[in-house]
Simulated assay, not measured.
Amino acid sequence: MMQTYKYSRNSWENQEKAIFDGVGMYDIPVIEPEEYHHVEWIGFNSARTTQKRKGKGIHFFLDDYQFTRIWKYPNQYVEMLKQFDFVMSPDFSTYTDFPNVLNIYNHFRKHWVAAYLQAHGVHVIPTISWSTPDSFDWCFDGEPHESTVAVSSVGCADVLDDFIAGYYKMVERLNPSTIIFYGKVPEQCKGNIVHVKAFTDKWKEAKTNGW
C-alpha cells in the first residue's frame, strides 16, 4: 500500500519509470544526436491545440510553470509529441543566482525527460543552457557532439557576458553542426545558426506594423 502511494504521488522523481545510464559526476542521462531539417517552431503551451503537427517542432523557451507537467506526467505527452517532427528538451531554468544544486537538478530533469521521450520514439533536439562559468563542469554532460543543438538568448540581457562565455564554451565542447538560436543573436555568436524569432519579438514587430 505504501509503495503504491509513493509511486502514484511521483515521490520517486520518475525513477520508477526509467533509470538511464548517466555520464559525468551527476549521472546525467544522455541525449542521442538528431539530424535537423527545417520546421516551424511553436511553444509547448500550444502543442495540444495545434492541429497540423507535421513540419512543426516544439520548444520549451517558456516560463517553467508552463511545462513542469511534462516532468510530473511524461506518459501523458509521449503520443502527442511523437506527431511533431522535433521536440526540444525542456528548458528547465538554470540561473546565475540559483543555488548550484537546483541548477544541477534542472539539468538532470531536462535530460531525463529528453532520454525518456527518445526511448519512446520522439525526435529530441537538446536545449543547451548554463549559468555561471562554474556550471561548465556539468552543464554539457549528456549532450551530443557534432549534432544539432538549441539555445536561447531570451532573458539574458543582464548577464550577456556569462551568456557569451557559455556559448563559446558550448561550441568548444560540443562542436555542434547546427545551432537553433531562439531570440536575438549577439554578434559575437558564430556558427551554423538557424535563427528563430522569439514570440515577444514577433509580437513587437506586429504591433509596430499595426497588425
Rank of each mutant, 00 (worst) to 15 (best):
G166R: 01
F98Q: 13
D27L: 05
P99N: 00
M88E: 13
V154P: 10
M1P: 15
F92Q: 04
D91Y: 04
E35N: 13
V185K: 09
V39N: 05
L102Y: 12
F181S: 05
M170Q: 08
L160R: 09
Y36H: 03
R173A: 00
E40N: 15
S11L: 15
S147T: 01
Y168W: 12
M88R: 08
F181K: 05
S152W: 09
I31T: 07
Q15W: 10
T50K: 02
Q118K: 01
I179Q: 11
T96P: 06
Q15I: 09
K184E: 14
A150M: 04
G57F: 06
P144G: 06
T127H: 12
K6S: 12
H120E: 03
H59C: 01
R173H: 09
A198W: 11
P90A: 05
H107E: 05
K72H: 11
T68I: 11
W203N: 03
W12Y: 14
Y167E: 01
W112H: 01
A47E: 05
W138N: 02
L117Q: 04
N106T: 11
A165P: 03
F92W: 04
E34T: 10
I125N: 00
F86N: 06
V78S: 05
D91L: 06
E146N: 11
Y7K: 15
Y95P: 11
V185E: 03
Q66S: 13
F44W: 03
Y77K: 10
C156Q: 14
P133H: 05
E35P: 10
V30P: 01
H195P: 13
C189H: 06
H38T: 13
R109Y: 02
T96W: 12
D201E: 14
G57A: 03
T208Q: 11
N175S: 14
K54W: 07
Y168E: 09
W71K: 11
I128S: 00
K6H: 09
R9I: 08
V39I: 12
E32I: 03
Y77F: 15
F20Y: 06
F44T: 06
Q3E: 12
S46C: 14
F98K: 12
W138Y: 14
G183L: 01
L174W: 00
D91S: 08
H120R: 11
G55Q: 08
F163Y: 09
C189M: 04
Q3R: 14
C156I: 06
G155S: 07
R69V: 09
R69M: 10
W12K: 14
H111G: 06
P186R: 08
V194R: 04
P186S: 00
E35C: 07
G55R: 06
N100W: 10
F60T: 04
G121D: 02
P186T: 03
T94K: 14
Q15S: 15
D141K: 06
N45H: 14
H145M: 05
T96C: 07
D134L: 10
S135C: 04
Y26N: 08
K6R: 14
S46F: 13
Q83N: 09
D63V: 13
A115P: 08
V149W: 00
E16W: 11
Q118L: 04
S11Y: 15
